[in-house]
Amino acid sequence: MNRIKEVLNAKGISQTELASRLGKTFNMVNLYTTNRVQPPIHILYQIAEILDIDVRELLVPNKLK
């Protein structure tokens, strides 16, 4: 699971803008943001770079403390 949609909303960036900056289609980014498809690690890093955040902020923790 990822938090791409949450971070996009918080940063005020549209899925269309992210798709353009990634060189991906809107449909692919929409699949990422709705957690229907998980982006490959290298794409996740590109998304984090575009959003100017640590890549770990895009991930839902797999273990709770």
Results as ranks from 00 to 15, higher is better:
18 L>C: 02
18 L>G: 00
18 L>K: 01
18 L>E: 01
18 L>I: 00
19 A>S: 00
20 S>H: 05
20 S>E: 06
21 R>G: 05
21 R>T: 07
21 R>I: 05
22 L>T: 03
23 G>F: 02
23 G>E: 03
24 K>Q: 01
24 K>I: 00
25 T>Q: 00
26 F>P: 02
26 F>R: 03
26 F>T: 03
27 N>G: 14
28 M>N: 07
28 M>S: 04
29 V>M: 01
29 V>Y: 01
30 N>S: 15
30 N>H: 13
30 N>Q: 14
31 L>Q: 11
31 L>C: 08
32 Y>W: 10
32 Y>S: 11
32 Y>N: 12
32 Y>P: 11
33 T>E: 09
33 T>C: 15
33 T>P: 03
33 T>H: 05
33 T>S: 11
34 T>D: 04
35 N>Q: 11
35 N>V: 06
35 N>D: 12
36 R>L: 09
36 R>Y: 04
36 R>N: 12
37 V>P: 06
37 V>E: 14
37 V>M: 13
37 V>K: 15
38 Q>H: 06
38 Q>M: 08
38 Q>T: 06
38 Q>F: 07
38 Q>S: 13
39 P>Y: 04
39 P>N: 05
39 P>A: 08
40 P>A: 13
40 P>N: 13
41 I>W: 07
41 I>Q: 08
41 I>N: 08
41 I>E: 09
41 I>D: 10
42 H>V: 14
42 H>L: 15
42 H>C: 14
42 H>W: 12
43 I>V: 13
44 L>K: 08
45 Y>A: 15
45 Y>V: 07
45 Y>D: 14
46 Q>L: 10
46 Q>P: 09
46 Q>G: 08
46 Q>F: 02
47 I>M: 13
48 A>C: 10
48 A>M: 11
48 A>L: 13
48 A>P: 02
48 A>T: 06
48 A>N: 09
49 E>A: 13
49 E>D: 13
50 I>C: 09
50 I>W: 11
50 I>T: 06
50 I>S: 09
50 I>Y: 11
51 L>T: 07
52 D>F: 05
52 D>S: 12
52 D>P: 04
52 D>I: 00
52 D>M: 04
53 I>Y: 04
53 I>R: 05
53 I>G: 01
54 D>L: 11
55 V>D: 00
55 V>I: 07
55 V>N: 01
55 V>F: 04
